Computed example of a mutant assay.
Amino acid sequence: MPKAITNVYKILMGVAVAAATATTVFAQASYPSRPVRLIVSQAPGGSSDTIARMWAEHAGKAIGATIVVENKPGAGGLIAAQNALNAPADGYTLLLGSVSLMVLNQFTYKPLPYNPEKDFVGVTMLTTVPFVLSANPATGIKTLKDLTEKAKAAPGKLNFASAGLGNSTHLAVELVSNALGISMTHIPYKGEADGILATIGGQTEVMAPVYGTALPHIKNHKLNPLAVLSPQRTPELPDVPTLGELGVKGFDNMGWSAVVARAGTPADVVEKLNKATAAFHQSPDVQAKLKSMGVIPMSGPSALVMETAARDAKAWGPTLGALNLSAK
């Protein structure tokens, strides 16, 4: 190839590369230029949905765009996760991550159709939340001792509800049951709200919903609280002991929520969303609402999400593996 032509070719290639780079930089710098989707694996009405909508409102204002919550319940969160992974890694489709999606599902769904560590990147931590082990009042179960005695007298007869197979509300009860040496039958529902209604209605006898979802039903005497899965008793339920007080250790911090994105999402987009979360955590209205729900704000760098997931998988993996749980 003649030298002159070669030089022209090099110049044109350089211009093309520069243009492509400039286009990419501009696209990232202009983010967001359209509405952002936040996919939630729970049905509307539960505490996870409430937290997602508050974050969407405040973070959306901070980045100057509308963040639309889309509820995709069912299949233990697999539908929501797959929906997020089917979208481009451009920051316009996010997923409300949780201990269920990012940790527990890998011990329930084998093979899990996604790899939490490789397929997602953390965006921001949002909250941690206690669970409340609760029973339908008609069962006569008022304490953890009552539950243990009733379950041991008739193994497998008591049913417990959850927000879905592999959900934290499922595996929390499995882990507690294992620690207590009891056996109950699991009945999964398409979301926390449905599981609560089933327990109140008597289709199931026991559930461990998150604190905010359980509290109004406890206040209305539709559920008997047996124990809280938290480091200390809560102000709204001062007479309800923690599992730790009752001698059942290792359940202080089972529930957390976060925002994640598909792996490959530009780092500057992730950082922009992480910084926008300050508007959520610093809002007096959000702080008051979270307090009323018994939810604790949790902030930190984007890397904290996957670090927390790895920590929990290591801590609970041996016990969950021994339970030999699997999706039917």
Rank of each mutant, 00 (worst) to 15 (best):
A4T: 01
N7H: 09
V17L: 14
A18V: 15
A19T: 14
T24S: 13
A27V: 12
A29G: 08
Y31L: 04
R37L: 14
V40K: 00
G45T: 07
I51Y: 00
M54R: 00
G60T: 01
G60L: 01
K61T: 01
P73I: 03
G74H: 06
G76R: 02
A80M: 06
Q82W: 05
A84R: 03
N86A: 13
A87D: 08
A89D: 12
Y92G: 03
M102A: 10
M102K: 01
N105A: 10
F107L: 11
Y109H: 13
K110C: 07
Y114E: 04
E117D: 15
E117V: 15
E117C: 05
F120W: 07
M125P: 00
L126A: 00
T127H: 04
L133C: 11
S134L: 04
N136C: 10
N136M: 11
P137F: 08
E149M: 11
A153I: 09
A154Q: 14
P155D: 13
G156W: 10
F160N: 02
S162E: 07
N167K: 03
N167P: 02
E174S: 11
L175H: 00
N178E: 14
N178T: 12
A179D: 15
L180H: 05
I182Q: 02
T185L: 04
I187C: 05
I187R: 12
G191Q: 05
G191N: 05
E192A: 10
D194S: 12
G195W: 01
L197F: 09
E205M: 10
V206F: 06
P209M: 09
G212R: 00
L215E: 02
P216K: 10
K219V: 15
N220M: 11
H221C: 06
L223H: 03
P225Q: 09
L226C: 06
V228T: 11
S230F: 05
P231H: 08
P231T: 12
Q232V: 12
R233C: 03
D239S: 14
V240W: 03
P241C: 07
P241F: 05
L246H: 12
K249S: 12
G250P: 07
F251L: 03
S257R: 00
A261R: 01
R262K: 15
A267H: 13
V269Q: 05
A278P: 05
F280N: 01
F280L: 03
D285N: 10
D285L: 11
Q287E: 08
Q287A: 13
L290C: 03
K291W: 06
K291R: 13
S292C: 09
G300N: 02
S302C: 10
A303F: 07
L304V: 08
V305H: 00
V305I: 11
V305S: 02
V305P: 02
A309D: 05
R311N: 14
K314N: 12
W316R: 10
T319V: 13
G321D: 14
G321H: 10
A322H: 12
L325R: 08
S326R: 14
